[in-house]
């Protein structure tokens, strides 16, 4: 027995983060510490530097949907392992772990909701479930949400946060890109709006399919959005990448998105878009008033 270990037994064991949850949150950009209640109140946006921290799918739904208006659909859809895929762990094991972690069987939550009183179909990605990856279940859920939107003549909102297509389903997941994109043509033919919200991060097969097909594309400040990952690009071209590369502001400058919206304004912006492009909504009580 080593000397240190003898004394180690007498030392007080430090509590793990799980036993005593920290009430302090550190901003990953400016490193300042903040009390968790303050941060929650500000929709997880750093009050010091305005950094938009990542939030869970449930927090996203709470942020956007009217209280108690969200009804989940298709939660019974579960993935299978068609390829018997094994990397460091088997796909089956990864699914089991992700399910245990998030309490869900897929990386998207889909359902009907109301946003400032306007009814809509919403699909939200959960980055916590296998990096928000797009597999067969996710693709099917999106198509079903599109079909519900067409049936009910409602707008569709997809909030993306994803690393891309799910490698463990290989070509099955690749073809979810064409499946979701094709379904969106039906929504477009019906003249219904699709508001695509790209959040940090939206990459690969998700950004290169439905996510970039929005009638209106909205992002949050500083979000990382692109096709190929920065490490891959760096290795391929053998050069450093410019500052702010693939961030929301970069995309706006390059004409790829419609607007960058602060998280605190997100709900109002989405509902205004649904009202403006939606079929059923008519604004009353407007007169021609020239503002001086």
């Amino acid at each position: 027995m080593k000397f240190g270990e003898i004394f180690g037994n007498f030392r007080k064991k430090q509590s793990s983060p799980k036993e005593a949850p920290s009430h302090w949150v550190k901003c990953s950009k400016c490193q300042s510490l903040m009390y968790f209640k303050e941060i929650e109140h500000l929709f997880n946006v750093c009050p010091k530097c305005g950094f938009h921290m990542r939030i869970t799918a449930q927090q996203r739904i709470d942020l956007i949907c009217d209280e108690g208006s969200f009804t989940e659909f298709d939660s019974s859809l579960a993935p299978v392992d068609p390829l018997k895929f094994v990397d460091k762990k088997s796909y089956k094991k990864r699914i089991t772990e992700a399910t245990a972690k998030t309490g869900r069987t897929s990386s998207v939550i889909s359902g009907a909701c109301a946003i400032n009183g306007v009814s809509a179909q919403i699909v939200v990605f959960d980055f916590g479930f296998m990096g928000g990856s797009l597999g067969s279940v996710e693709g099917e859920k999106i198509v079903r949400a599109i079909n519900r939107a067409i049936e009910n003549k409602e707008g569709l909102i997809i909030v993306s946060a994803s690393g891309g297509a799910r490698m463990q389903e290989s070509t099955f997941s690749l073809l979810q890109m064409s499946k979701t994109s094709a379904a969106l043509t039906k929504l477009s033919d019906a003249g219904l709006p699709f508001i695509s919200v790209l959040t940090d991060p939206t990459m690969g097969g998700v950004s290169a399919s439905f996510a970039w097909l929005g009638d209106v594309i909205i992002t949050e400040p500083g979000s990382l959005i692109g096709f190929a990952g920065q490490r891959v690009i760096k290795q391929t071209i053998g050069a450093d990448l410019p500052e702010g590369f693939q961030r929301a502001e970069f995309l706006l400058e390059h004409g790829l998105i419609d607007m960058i919206v602060q998280r605190s304004n997100m709900k109002k912006t989405i509902s205004d878009m649904l009202k403006f492009f939606g079929k059923n909504y008519k604004k009353d009580g407007y007169e021609l008033k020239i503002k001086a």
Partner: peptide, 27 residues
């Protein structure tokens, strides 16, 4: 009224010499 600006050609660059807004004029 209640206007929003929309940006970009979704291909190369957001040309600021042309602007696009949506909103309401008299209902």
């Amino acid at each position: 009224q209640d206007s929003y600006e929309l940006h970009g050609d979704r291909a190369f660059k957001d040309d600021l010499a042309i602007v696009c807004y949506i909103g309401y004029i008299a209902e």
